[in-house]
Amino acid sequence: MPEPIAAQPKVRLDRVTKRYGDLVVLDQLSMDVAPNEMISIIGPSGSGKTTILRLLMTLEQVTDGIISIDGEPLTHMPKNGGLAPANRAHLRRMRTKIGMCFQHFNLFPHMTALQNCIEGPIQVLGMSKVEATARAMDLLAMVGLEEKAGEHPVRLSGGQKQRVAIARALAMRPEVLLLDEVTSALDPEVIGEVLQVIRGLNKKYDLTILMVTHQMGFAKEISDRVVFIYEGKVEEAGAPDQIFGDPTSERTRQFLSAVLEAG
């Protein structure tokens, strides 16, 4: 059972299970995220970290359990006193609160950096082109890419693409931002510029951030809390100093020593 927090959690996963056939990816996983919290999700590959984000973005459907945002069920809606799977309208309404950045950026290749950033605001939020462009330019400036606004993704480096993707996600004014291994596909020398953008993002834009990452040093430095996932369950969660300095679980200890040795 999730521990009750005094205030309403921003995100709550309540005994969430995700199965593909016989393969159990998430096994009755429960977890709360407080408003404005910056959470790093770590764990061995195949442990289900990315699946948590994909479920939150409604890219996949839960097999069992409930996910809620601000106390409102994400993939379900109240019906006849019970809960029924959400319809499209409900999903679209809930998605306005959530944004996501992907490991492989998924920028739209036929649009410039700026067009990538104004597409959603104009089409979905109904913003005027002038306003959307002004906001997008601010965001591109924030990620240090003002002068690349007119370039297509094919002409950008990996680090630049990921910074555009972050600006694109922020342009939709999400309340919850999901960062899925945003540095895993990058060359080592450009990882820093992306991490620099992420630093302090939750304070600046009033965001709740869930970040799946392999950058242990970075996770330790900027997270409010670190969650270690093992075989589809939360094995251990706590303050970065505690998880990295004095983990209580033997599995956490083994994972961290293996990763830190390799890194």
């Binding site: 973005m57 409604t58 890219l59 679209r92 998605r95 306005t96 959530i98 944004g99 996501m100 992907f102 998924n106 920028l107 739209f108 597409e119 959603g120 089409q123 979905v124 694109r168 996600a169 939709m172």
Partner: peptide, 10 residues
């Protein structure tokens, strides 16, 4: 397609 979902495009 996933990016479109994440941006909430119809």
């Amino acid at each position: 397609w996933e990016a479109c979902t994440a941006l909430n495009l119809g």
